[in-house]
Amino acid sequence: MSSIWEYANPKKFIETTDRILPALAVLTGVALLLGLIWGFFLTPDDFRQGSTVKIVFLHVPSALMAINAWLMMLVASLIWIVRRHHVSALAARAAAPVGLVMTMIALLTGAIWGQPMWGTWWAWDPRLTSFLILFLFYLGYIALWAAIENDDTAADLTAILCLVGSVFALLSRYAVNFWNQGLHQGASLSVKSGERMDMTYKLPLYVCMAGFVLLFVVLVLIRTGTEIRARRMRVLLARERMGA
């Protein structure tokens, strides 16, 4: 029988990830190095933004992963609620700090980029504000995991928080858009936006995005493995106490 749920078995999960992780890590390193070197050194300066534009190669991929990490947590939470696979709950738990850091990188690089462009480190622009709110959601989610001792209780509560939080994060996005029509440029790659990117920037940016996606996958796999081993340790300790 071969189904994707096979990998919901912690043992199988660890075996598989241990096998593919080295290759995946190398691939991640190559993609990131290639993308960032290409982006930073081998692209021309923008005629308006100068070399500041090159921070886009960090800013856009991290912003992308900040949102996708939450989406992944949402899917993993749903899988936990519906099918109750422990690996799924642990993967959601493992992804949260990674998502938090990605959000932080997006905010920081945004501030560094915004200073020369808009003349300010921070503006209550809808996009910036949305990311700040997302940051708060990550903090709450991680804090709730940390506060509860029982693993299954924590998994249940954080999964429900993730679902409810997703709805409210989406609502906040619309609310913030309504509240302030900001100065942020449109999505960097969107077709509609006026300032479309040139191919010379797009290609290295795609490579960087792939690198960040791989980086996220690698980090989450490692962290999920760690969570599984920690959980296994607790089971073993409990069994030892039972035997005594």
Partner: peptide
């Protein structure tokens, strides 16, 4: 009294 740790589908899979 439970003698051994009941190995259910999930926790058991951790071992």
């Amino acid at each position: 009294r439970a003698r051994a740790l009941a190995v259910d589908d999930f926790d058991g899979a951790f071992l």
